[in-house]
Amino acid sequence: MSGEEPSSTQESSKTKQNHTDTNEEEADLYLDQYNFTTTAALVASVDRKVMVTVKTGQIYFGILRTYDHFANLTLEFVTERIYLLKDDLENSDNFKPKFNISTREYNRADRQYEYYAERPVGCYLIRGENVVFIGEVDIDKEDKPLRYLKKVDWRLANDIISKKRRLEHRFNEKQAVRYSRKGFS
């Protein structure tokens, strides 16, 4: 009997080890399939071309060199790009924000950009709290949409966008005051 006990103990320790190995393999498999929603998701994009949109609306294209846990990004070979609608260029002096514009209307997929402008920026550090969107760019397809757009002078495009942002900001401030008078905050 005493000869059987050590063998059953050995078998139970082997079973425990096999069970532990299986759990580790399952955990590794689980992590491989898990989509990271934190800055850990950026690991695959390091040393690749990315597009970054910031809170103020600027769009930057560049090579992601490094980042930290706050999503502070260091980009190299950066270009800033502005897209303009036909109405933006033609009616830049008469631009007025639409009242009660819905998010659906503002983000319509069929909005046709007809113009663009870009300027080289160089190396750029973007603070993580300002990042709205970051996505990897397929360098084989990056320039395809630009074929259908007309390039305009950077200063002209920047002046138009700056004016639009100022007017929209004033409009939003006035609208916030109107809403607060009615009891909305």
Rank of each mutant, 00 (worst) to 15 (best):
Y179H: 11
R166W: 08
Y30V: 00
D143I: 09
F184D: 06
Y179I: 04
E80F: 05
F70G: 02
N91E: 12
S7V: 15
S45I: 00
K49T: 14
A176E: 11
D87P: 00
T20P: 00
E173M: 14
K55W: 02
L73S: 02
R127I: 09
A44Q: 14
R165S: 11
R147I: 10
T66G: 07
P120V: 03
K141T: 14
D68K: 01
T20G: 00
P97N: 05
N18P: 00
E5F: 12
L64V: 03
C123W: 03
E26V: 03
K14Y: 09
Y34D: 02
D88W: 01
R108C: 05
L156T: 14
F133P: 00
R81W: 08
L84A: 02
A157N: 03
K55R: 08
R65Y: 03
Y34Q: 06
K141W: 07
R170I: 15
D110L: 06
S180L: 11
L42Q: 04
R81C: 13
V46H: 05
E118H: 09
R127C: 11
G135Q: 08
Y148A: 15
R127L: 09
G62W: 03
K14L: 15
S180E: 13
Q17L: 15
E136N: 03
N72E: 03
R165P: 01
Y179C: 13
N23L: 15
S185C: 09
T15F: 15
G3D: 07
R165C: 06
Y106T: 02
I82Q: 00
D87Y: 05
R127Q: 07
Q17M: 11
H169N: 11
E105R: 12
D110H: 13
N130G: 04
Y124E: 07
E114Y: 03
S8F: 14
Q10W: 09
Y113Q: 05
L146F: 15
D47Y: 14
T56N: 14
V152K: 01
S185A: 10
V52F: 04
